[in-house]
Amino acid sequence: MISSMMHYLILSAMLFSIGIYGILTRRNAIAILMCIELMLNAVNLNFVAIGAHLTPNQITGQLFAAFVITVAAAEACIGFALIIAIYRNFEKVSVDDINIMRW
């Protein structure tokens, strides 16, 4: 019998590796940012599960997850603003075509 925390950790590892697969194979910048959101959700699952099991009387794990959600929202905001700006200048959102900073 494995504990429910271990189930959460394994589930979150699976979700994270799905996100890794997406980031490595996608070429659309928007799709890559969506995969990053997937990975951040996996991290939040870890925070909540470990916090609930190792410090059951404190709320620290959930608080860290809340901070991660906040920073992720800021990151998504900036990321999609950048994508919109890039699209306006280049007319494309594929990361293979946006290589102007590559020497």
Binding site: S17, L24, R26, R27, N28, S94
Partner: peptide, 23 residues
Amino acid sequence: RALVSRGKGMGIVVAACFLVLMF
């Protein structure tokens, strides 16, 4: 046009490596 996808094999290998590492 460019949504899918290059290097599927490599993506699977890297993701599986991460999963094995975490396990």
